[in-house]
Nucleic acid binder design. Structure first.
Lengths: 262, 262
DNA sequence: CGCGAGCTTGAGCTCTATCAACCAGTGTGG
DNA sequence: CCACACTGGTTGATAGAGCTCAAGCTCGCG
């Protein structure tokens, strides 16, 4: 049932070096600078589109960095909100606790993405942010950021755009959760990850899932077994090649067709 | 199987006058004023929390009203975005078209709520906004609004909060779509409508659904038949009383328990 | 009165969750 | 160095929730 070639270490195409320098790297070392002005994520993160003069203002707000170990919690459900967190390196999930004891992952956040935007309206976090791997974030005091936007209209615009694109992204997930089959969901998920890694400058067709099958299931509204089965099936059908967390998209077109284009 | 009392016109408790003046009224006539300063939705809409001096500034931006007939489209998927719409009276749904031909309703918007926030980031609308009943909106030119926020920090804060609470609301729907049974979804939906009507000053336990079973299904990720069956079951179990679009919550506690409190 | 849109109910089937067993890899302690 | 436990992944069997198809009903309207 399993393609034995995959089990054979020699036949694994995915651990070759060219990849190891890009998407497969946990990206912790990729960006050592400590201010927005010289951060390699500046093009995709909060300061995207700002003039360099304005960047310096932002530098002061993002001085505080925080390291978070894999599995550790950045903020809890119910914590007072006064800080936005920009992911510098690594990856996070935000999870909502359900009374049933189960959890629902509402978001996956890669580097350059900002977490906590949903809490602006209520002054408290609704979710728990958990590191999927050893990660680092910039802590951005929201009150100061808001002051700054009054002086820098572009920054205000940028902030609004970030919130807005969060909404748009969530709507995409709602479409997915509300009207797609398990197969479509997983295909859409893989393609979405691919797009995001590409945007970060990594290989689009080859990356490491930072999360467990269970995490993916929680995110897509599926049981972990279903995720596992589908991964196997995609592999059997030659759409992807996968070994544990390592994924290579071999036929992105076919995946796109599975999703259907909307 | 159906409680015959409900079919009997005499036994219907829901068409009595006290209700007819509140939630059952389509609310078209409820708010005839034509500027924010004297609009009865001012406390729940965009201007919420602004000082009256600032309200006057906002008045200028919301001069343009637009009437939309039931079933008519306010804006289409792909339309250029330059205007936010605040629902003055009536109700809207926003729907995303899927290639399969089916549609997914991503939002239900009652009066006092603002539509189009998801398009800020992309300059184009991703969804179609359709009136669920004869409705009226305020057209708010976004560029001008943004200018105004630079002069009125409170307005900026308000705008951010609206976007943020949109995100939070969407997350709620994602939780619902991703991890609740059909029964829980419908119960949550009814309770949510109840809360929103209450906030608008209507009766919390008695209202008219502005949408068809199909709309509800599209919104909750269920087939219309499932919605219908569950409505019947809730009625049979004494949780609600319903006749077509008219709904009375008879046991909100039980509904809350069905949802489970998270 | 007849028509159509929307709602209800039934029957059957499919997809996916659940339960369960097993496997691989990793870390731990004796 | 091996036994053992533990985490995460795979695969199978089974059952049930909800979808689809289909028929009939209600109500408002021309």
């Amino acid at each position: 049932m399993l393609n034995t070639a995959v089990r054979d270490p020699v036949a694994r195409p995915m651990v070759r070096l060219p990849y190891a320098r890009t998407a497969l790297q946990p990206a912790n070392s990729a960006c050592a600078m400590n201010s927005c002005s010289n951060c390699c994520r500046q093009g995709v993160c909060l300061p995207a589109g700002l003039s360099s003069a304005n960047l310096f203002d932002l530098d002061e707000l993002t001085r505080v960095k925080r390291r978070v170990k894999r599995g550790a919690v950045l903020y809890h459900n119910g914590d007072r909100f006064n800080t936005l967190y920009a992911v510098r390196s690594g990856a996070f999930k935000t999870v909502g606790a359900l009374s049933s004891g189960r959890e629902k992952t509402t978001g996956i956040h890669l580097s350059g993405e900002v977490m906590g935007l949903d809490a602006i309206s209520s002054t408290r976090h609704h979710y728990r942010a958990v590191a999927l791997e050893d990660s680092e974030v910039c802590a951005i005091p929201f009150a100061k950021l808001q002051e700054l936007t009054l002086r820098i209209p572009e920054l205000q615009h940028r902030l609004l755009r970030m919130l807005s694109s969060d909404i748009a992204r969530d709507h995409g997930l709602m479409l997915l959760l509300g009207s797609m089959t398990a197969e479509q969901r997983l295909a859409a998920f893989l393609l979405s990850l691919s797009r995001r890694y590409k945007r970060l400058g990594y290989a689009a067709d080859h990356f490491i899932l930072r999360m467990t099958r269970e995490d993916i299931g929680d995110y897509l509204g599926l049981a972990l077994e279903t995720v596992s089965r589908l991964m196997s099936r995609f592999q059997r059908d030659g759409l992807i090649s996968t070994q544990q967390r390592e994924v290579e998209l071999k036929d992105a077109t076919a995946l796109t067709e599975i999703v259907g284009h909307w």
